[in-house]
Design a protein around this nucleic acid. Sequence first.
DNA 1: CCGGTTATAATGTATAGACATATATTGCGC
DNA 2: GCGCAATATATGTCTATACATTATAACCGG
Lengths: 232, 232
Amino acid sequence: MALHDRIRTEIEGQILSGTLQPGDKVPSELELMAHYGCSRMTVSKALTALSGAGLLQRRKRAGTVVAPRPTETMVLDVPDLAVEIARRGQAYRFQLIGRDIRPPRPEDELDEGLARAGLLLFVRGVHSADDEPIAYEERFISLTAVPEITEADFSVESPGSWLLRHIPWTEAENRIGAVGAHPDWAARLNIAPGTACLSIERKTWRGDERITLVRQKFVAGSFELVARFGAA
Amino acid sequence: MALHDRIRTEIEGQILSGTLQPGDKVPSELELMAHYGCSRMTVSKALTALSGAGLLQRRKRAGTVVAPRPTETMVLDVPDLAVEIARRGQAYRFQLIGRDIRPPRPEDELDEGLARAGLLLFVRGVHSADDEPIAYEERFISLTAVPEITEADFSVESPGSWLLRHIPWTEAENRIGAVGAHPDWAARLNIAPGTACLSIERKTWRGDERITLVRQKFVAGSFELVARFGAA
DNA sequence: CCGGTTATAATGTATAGACATATATTGCGC
DNA sequence: GCGCAATATATGTCTATACATTATAACCGG
């Protein structure tokens, strides 16, 4: 392991193990370079990395301190459904229910960004694995931002996959909750209204431009999000 | 803005905007240092940062290429419930239902790590906001790893908050799903059995040592997880 | 044409030094 | 004492250089 990596790992270990508490001062670069017998750049690289990871806070003249334990933050993988289902060894299918080009309506409960985006492509469909419905999806796509999507064929590929391949987003926001199945779409999932579903609403942007809003309902038990955080 | 920051931002922008596609080759450090008229270290710093963020892949001799678009990965904040509810301006309370020291049982459906951890502290309780129940929680804590928790007073503080303050974890795994309320605890939340709930199961480790497993059920609509990813 | 060896091009790591910048501390004048 | 200016300290940025490492590419013998 490289020296700067070793330094980083050692300090990281002291923080994660609690030996160094939030607010505690970390030795200055000069002290560390004496301790490890290396140049300042090497120490600096280690500390800068930890600072970037949010474990340390560095201020000129004041020195380096352990960052306050943040709101527990973990990395959440939001997989492409088609890929995820294929990985389980099941046959993925997206079944289009409806496709509509129209202006936003009040009952869509859109956010400001999309409500003022002009014409929208509104797509509804069901994701299924081995012909078992897994999730119902409603999606609004700004035609101002993505005019070329009118040519996409959603009987082959889900709108999500299409967007993922064609329009990189730069910013996204997910809201994750639970909800009882609504009569309007419960039948699409072969479940009784009121059955528990995992609800995911995602908005994406490219720069300042709103791209899409999607609301997905997963039958309880059919799908789980897994978030993992930690070393290694 | 520092030069290495500018370089990083410019390349990042080209990736996020799609100008540079996954697999595309990024100019070599030599070319970039000619382009920006700076030293190699400066270019390297920018590229190393982007590599650390997962946007680039660097290989000796082969050069630097744009990383394949990963499974969409976003940062998920898992707030301390007490803090989160306080932020909403509501009064947080944890009501202890039961507290038990006993060995693991098969019906606990624990993972290997905890099942073999020896004695466990088993705690059940309800989180409430303004005396409205929000979440039901079952938690198993390894007494081997955290013997001092027997002295904690959970009528004052939830086990989660106590652990957060006393035992830093180094690794954690969350599973997020939806589930219909089980009769055993539906009444605790003042809801009918079968009502949709958001289910979170979290395991934490400190090093190789299993610390705790917690299962929380949130009444649908009372709580949402928000994950945000992007620049700035 | 195949397979192994060698050369080479890229990144990886590290050094020593210079100057810039922000800020906590000190001390001075009042 | 109080407020402002000077000073010292720690980090931030950057350069120029050196050598290490590694995967690709080129070469060459059989």
